[in-house]
């Protein structure tokens, strides 16, 4: 995929498909250590050892509509091209954590791309009853969103409501502008 943020969306969709009610997304950019790390941790149904080994290969999928699953293997290849790697930790009934790292300035490292659209794609998921805790750290600066806080303030009004959706998108865009301004300064 052309952007890392597309891989992030794919990981979030995996967590949702695993029935997670809590998803933590962490993105860390450390310019001094020259490291970019993306972590997605969920409390979904998890995978046994055998399934974990299969999941990073191209011919495994839980879906019944087709026979290949390319999400994790594509991401693993993207990380390994950049002197990084993909680690998968999972336990049945507990959840799954995917941690993927990249050498930040590697020539083959895909751009982060439009993370706001990625977050909106996940937040607009038709699956109900789950929360996302998202943090993006850029050196010492940090920006994030906890949907459970947003939900509490919104009561019965869903995150997918058009007015809420527009507000969230501009909130995220503004947060990102500031994060990168601070990071550059």
């Amino acid at each position: 995929m052309r952007e890392l943020s597309l891989h992030v969306l794919d990981l979030l969709e995996n967590s949702l498909a695993a029935g997670a009610s809590q998803i933590r997304l962490g993105i860390e950019e450390d310019t001094r250590a020259n490291l970019l790390v993306i972590t997605v941790a969920d409390n979904g149904r998890g995978m046994d050892r055998e399934t974990q080994a299969l999941a990073v290969g191209p011919f495994y999928t839980t879906r019944t509509t087709r026979h290949v699953g390319l999400g994790l293997p594509l991401l693993k290849a993207a990380a390994e091209r950049c002197e990084g790697g993909l680690e998968l930790h999972s336990e049945v009934g507990v959840g799954t954590t995917v941690r993927v790292s990249f050498q930040r300035d590697h020539i083959d490292r895909a751009p982060m791309g439009d993370l706001v659209s990625t977050l909106m794609g996940a937040l607009l998921s038709s699956r109900r009853g789950w929360d996302l805790v998202f943090t993006h750290r850029f050196d010492q600066h940090e920006f994030g969103l906890d949907t459970s806080e947003a939900r509490e303030l919104l009561g019965d009004v869903p995150l997918t409501h058009p007015a809420v959706r527009e507000w969230l998108e501009s909130y995220l865009r503004q947060g990102y502008e500031e994060l990168y301004e601070q990071g550059a300064g």
């Binding site: 498909a17 509509t65 087709r66 607009l124 998921s125 038709s126 997918t160």
Partner: peptide
């Protein structure tokens, strides 16, 4: 209009 997202439905 409401906008929502779903997973793969098999018409890849």
């Amino acid at each position: 209009a409401n906008v929502t997202t779903v997973g793969c439905i098999g018409m890849c």
